[in-house]
């Protein structure tokens, strides 16, 4: 049986809807705060989801984000159908970007997205296949002493 604090949420996202970027992050943040998750942890989750959301909107046709709240960690998974990433190592380097001018003028596409997700995660995993899509997993530990 699951303990009360455990729960799972799924959100699907349609690509190319840039004006909506950040909405999912904001909604999930509200839910997590209502659940009494410490603010510092919620901020990290909110940043990771924001970046993941921007990536899906910028580069994929469709995608979904799943978040799972466990007693001692939060797991965020994002899967999309889209162009995928050719060189994952390169894509994780700060400053590397394939963004077009439209994305840049929105203030994104500076090549910090994946690096940011990694920075705010305790565990970070990424898989991608060109022409098919990308899977990202981030685990953030709920360290009750620190927060």
């Amino acid at each position: 049986m699951k303990s009360e604090s455990e729960f799972v949420g799924n959100v699907s996202i349609v690509g190319h809807g840039f004006e909506y970027a950040g909405r999912v992050s904001n909604e999930i943040k509200k839910i997590l705060l209502e659940q009494g998750i410490p603010e510092g942890i919620v901020r990290r989750v909110a940043v990771v989801i924001f970046e993941v959301e921007v990536n899906i909107i910028s580069y994929a046709e469709t995608g979904f984000i799943r978040y799972q709240v466990l007693p001692d960690s939060i797991i965020i998974e994002a899967k999309d159908k889209g162009q995928g990433i050719a060189d994952i190592e390169l894509a994780q380097q700060e400053g590397y970007s394939t963004a077009d001018d439209k994305i840049r003028e929105m203030g994104f596409g500076a090549g910090m997205g994946l690096a940011n997700i990694k920075k705010f995660s305790d565990v970070f995993e990424i898989n991608s296949e060109v022409g098919k899509g990308t899977y990202v997993k981030s685990i953030i530990n709920i360290d009750k002493k620190r927060s």
Binding site: A21, S25, F50, V54, G107, G109, A110, M112
Partner: peptide, 30 residues
């Protein structure tokens, strides 16, 4: 750059920006 804000801004700060899209507000909330 909003990715810059997401990476390095901290809670409680005042954000000074020229970018007027809703994303700035959403990041501020995040």
């Amino acid at each position: 750059l909003m990715s810059d804000v997401l990476c390095d801004a901290r809670s409680g700060c005042l954000l000074i920006t020229g970018l007027t899209t809703p994303q700035g507000v959403r990041i501020a909330y995040a």
